[in-house]
């Protein structure tokens, strides 16, 4: 399948004198992938996100970037920021930093208005974005009066109104309560399935992210130390994963511990129903073989 993002020999320092935040990254991302990124705080995850949406090098101008980032066939160094933002939508941890209009509707219309799109087109895009993140009922509300989860959905809708092919989310659920986090992640999964949007999400709560992600990247000290299907993480040793700041969901810890104690399972489950059925059928069959 077609690569929507190609990264070659990427290196970046915020200042010539500072330690590089990105030491070396080579990566291909295919259209429609759902990628989770994890790693210790300070490992370069947020810097990497800024490289994807062109904030690096266009906004962080005192930095030094080497190598290339190609998005949808075009080199980000040669593409003006306003064009990159129509390809790559970025959602941050704190939705308040992204919202500024007096009503939800106005906030979502802001991006398309700035592109100088015709009125009808703006209206259509706002409606679509409201529907996609299921906030049509909030259209007249003031963003600052909404709950954190609702605000984050407005932030996502505002980005969607630019019709990006790629959505980059930097810890979008960090400030949300568990119900808000699940809401937001469900919406994101929907977008990937329905709209075939490529999703790249930095997320500490792996127990939530791994229910949708088909590929997991772990960053450490400005490089990628893991790039594979999430299941492969378990096959490797659990201790290095934690040293890289990846907290194994307690479900996975349970299975790993049982395996260490001599039980074997056909697979490691990432969701509860599957885990229950594996336990019921396979721990049960262990009973019949051990007796």
């Amino acid at each position: 399948m077609e690569n929507i993002i190609q990264i070659r020999n990427l290196k970046f320092s915020y200042r010539p004198s500072r330690q590089p935040a990105i030491r070396e990254i080579d990566l291909d991302i295919r259209k429609g992938e759902y990628i989770a990124i994890a790693g210790l705080s300070g490992c370069g995850k947020s810097t990497f996100c800024r490289c994807l949406n062109g904030l690096i090098p266009h906004f962080y101008r005192s930095g030094v970037m080497k190598g290339s980032v190609t998005v949808d066939g075009l080199d980000t160094r040669e593409l003006p920021l306003y064009e990159i933002t129509q390809k790559v939508g970025m959602v941050f941890q704190d939705p308040e930093s992204q919202l500024m209009a007096l009503t939800v509707e106005r906030d979502i219309a802001f991006g398309p208005e700035n592109l100088g799109l015709p009125r009808e087109e703006i209206r259509a895009r706002v409606e679509e974005a409201l529907e996609l993140v299921k906030i049509a009922h909030l259209r007249e509300r003031a963003p600052h009066e909404l709950s954190g989860g609702e605000q984050q959905r407005v932030a996502i809708a505002s980005v969607l109104a630019l019709q990006p092919k790629i959505l980059v989310l930097d810890e979008p659920t960090a400030n949300l309560d568990p119900a808000g986090a699940v809401d937001v992640l469900n919406i994101i999964e929907n977008l990937q399935v329905q709209k075939k949007i490529t999703v790249i999400i930095v997320e500490h709560r792996l127990e939530l992210a791994l229910q949708s992600a088909t590929r997991l990247l772990i960053m450490h000290d400005g490089t990628l130390v893991f790039d594979d299907k999430p299941e492969k993480l378990i096959a490797k040793d659990i201790i290095p994963a934690e040293a890289y700041g990846v907290q194994m969901p307690s479900l996975i810890q349970l299975f790993t511990q049982l395996m260490d104690e001599g039980h074997s399972f056909s697979q490691i489950p990432f969701n509860i129903p599957l885990a229950a059925s594996i336990i019921l059928s396979e721990l049960g069959s262990a009973r019949s073989t051990s007796e």
Binding site: E207, L251, L254
Partner: peptide, 13 residues
Amino acid sequence: KLRPPQITALAWE
């Protein structure tokens, strides 16, 4: 609006 811990959810299932 809390979710049960994963282990609790598994116990329920």
